[in-house]
């Protein structure tokens, strides 16, 4: 079985993000870049399937600048078998889904596992778009995955607003990982050493013969509205008095 996973390069979630001086994007100086945490969960899930099955191949893809090599190396160090870097200049989710469609056509995986959203643009779109383009089933926001029929079908539990939904579908399919699917491993030192020797293919997105222009233009970016500073209360009684008198919410 072959599993394709993604590794988007995003700012570390602990980083404080600020709008840049000309209001066109974020201040990138000093940011530490990591693998999108939900993609890490996706990679971990693929590795667990491989370990359970014994002979699966895990291919990891990143779309973006040449710097995405770092995130691919992280995925390889976790245990992915090989990597594909697709260089593209600031693609939007629609363009990324078109690129991934082409990569899937080349690689013919049985399963694509991605994070449910990237923590930079918070779009939560690419997995669903990719599934549609391929005409494949999708299961988003999953917390459990079980393969059946010798890897020919899957059952997933999805974390939805009203509870837990179970779906089943034939493979190939696209699934997107939620927080509780697993706890990703750290790359081991031998893993990091081995990752240096694992193959990394580089593809220029412009060679794929697809429309790469943005369908969503970012006109400007603004910082969020500031919330007026509050105050410290000294006791539960003072808190209740404030909620009743000042705030009138009790």
């Amino acid at each position: 079985m072959k599993i394709l996973v993604t590794a988007k390069r995003v700012p570390d979630p602990e980083t404080t993000i600020k709008v840049n001086a000309d209001g066109t994007g974020i201040e990138e100086a000093g940011i530490k870049w990591v693998v999108n945490p939900f993609d890490e969960i996706a990679i971990e899930e693929a590795l667990r399937i491989k370990e359970a099955q014994g002979e699966a191949e895990v291919v990891i893809v990143s779309v973006g600048s040449a710097d995405c090599q770092e995130q691919l190396r992280t995925g390889l160090a976790m245990g992915a078998d090989r990597a594909i870097l697709v260089s593209a200049d600031n693609p939007d989710p629609t363009a990324v889904s078109r690129i991934l469609e082409k990569i899937v056509e080349q690689e013919s995986p049985d399963l694509v596992i991605m994070g449910k959203q990237a923590i930079d643009d918070d779009s939560n779109e690419v997995g669903q778009m990719l599934a549609q383009r391929l005409g494949w089933p999708q299961a988003t926001f999953i917390s459990e995955l079980e393969l059946a029929g010798g890897g020919g079908s899957a059952t997933c539990v999805r974390e939805i607003d009203g509870g837990l939904e179970t779906l089943s579908f034939p493979l190939p399919a696209v699934i997107t990982a939620d927080l509780r699917l697993n706890e990703p491993r750290y790359a081991s030192l031998p893993g990091i050493m081995k990752a240096r020797k694992k193959p990394m293919e580089e593809i220029d997105a412009s060679s794929l013969g697809i429309e790469l222009g943005r369908s969503v233009t970012i006109v400007s970016v603004q910082p969020p509205p500031e919330r007026a500073a509050g105050r410290v209360v000294e006791s539960v009684d003072e808190l209740i008095a404030a909620l009743q008198g000042e705030a009138k919410v009790l």
Partner: peptide, 16 residues
């Protein structure tokens, strides 16, 4: 729409 956990709000235009 918000991005970066609400640290940034982007004004976007849908080109279709």
């Amino acid at each position: 729409r918000p991005m970066y956990a609400g640290n940034v709000f982007a004004t976007v235009k849908l080109e279709s």
